[in-house]
Design a protein around this nucleic acid. Sequence first.
DNA 1: AAAAACATAAACATCT
DNA 2: TAGATGTTTATGTTTT
Length: 461
Amino acid sequence: MGPTMPPSKKAQSPSSGLGATRGLSPLYREAEAADLSLSLSASFSKAEDEELTSLSWLHESTDLLNSFSHSGLRSVSPLQDPDGHPLPPHSPSSSSPSPDPCDSSPYDLATGANRKPPYSFSCLIFMAIEDAPSKRLPVKDIYGWILEHFPYFASAPTGWKNSVRHNLSLNKCFKKVDKDRSQSIGKGSLWSIDPEYRNNLIQALKKTPYHPYSPGLVTPSTSPPTSPQAYHSPPLWPGSPFLRKNGGVILQVPQGVIQNGARIRSQGLFPVIRPLPICSVGSRTTAIRSALGDYLTQGNIGHPCDSPSPPPSDDLQEDHNYSTAKSPSMPCSSQGPSTLDDDDDIIAVEVGVHREVKSEPQEVPLDSASVSFLSQHARRRGLPWTKNRLRALGDTLPLKKRRSAAAAVEKPPSESDDEEMKEAAGSLLHLAGVRACLNNITNRAAKAAQKEKEQKEALRN
DNA sequence: AAAAACATAAACATCT
DNA sequence: TAGATGTTTATGTTTT
């Protein structure tokens, strides 16, 4: 970027973070996937092969489904081992011989306060601002919010404040609000979230393994989103206005509890921070996510984006300030600039299964999150073509001017939500069908067993 | 290996 | 003037 940049270093894309803290998600994701990802899909295929003659696979699968949905639901609830026994928050001395990916976390689950939170500064700032009633905060209050929710920073080196300011300045997701001189708040300005980039911040939070945006953290809403905006930018974290308006909030963490370095408050906007996934549970969930994901992808859900047409970019970092420009609208996205990647696919399945399991198939509520997630399930990563294009454009402009310049080449969102709603509904219903089928067979098996038992008893008598 | 994402440090300007 | 705030540059680390 800078003209003085060493040639060996690529023009720095000093994107202030939009993504989750690195190093966590990929590690545990991989390990999870490697663990039980085969078990469910294997079960499904086994069913086909054996023509349902054996029911062992079924119980296996059903258990997995249940545990998956439950683990998704009770994201802050007691973690369980594969047998359903509660696990301590973090057990490095786990008997598992294989390396535990969770151990690689820089996070201290036991105290939460000693280690750096698994959120990038941009996520922290975002949460702070979103937590403010007026959705705008002076830096000082952003400091305060971070300190209040992440005690780690109380004893952290003072540089973090510099990083916060650095992020505010450089991340175009954050916008300085012109301060009314009459209502001066003292030094500095108020900072707010640029609505254009809000979705991207949400996506960034989603990429954090413990993000409070996870649909798994919330109860399914029983009514559809009330505003069109909700379809595009569903604020799904517990306590969000959206949720408050549409349903309940699952909060199972006592007030004041510190988890993942976050001080949990029941009334806060981001009161729930997902605990670091314990692998025995996490691997299950990923297994199911993976298996169901494959299942859904194999022609069970058609999506316009599955066609050979160029896949949309879902690079969240396209919204970074320094040299990149706002990410473009996606031809198949109803969610604004960014689309979903594999992580989001995971969430999509999580939502679907969770809802399906919790309610009758016909009662599956379709909120914006599940709609978007499911509809984009099979989407694949695309080349961030606009990123390069816009970067080339932006590099020649002063920092803040790049934003407007980039915006000038933006295209408005074009995809209708209806199509995705239909697909999502199909996906959910399909999941519901899978589950119903499983239940059906389970019931029949149980009945058969019962009958057999009764016959034996009758014979004995 | 290169690129990208993110963190951190620091210099400097501006404002209160 | 001091300190807070805001901007920018430089560079290191880690992940993709």
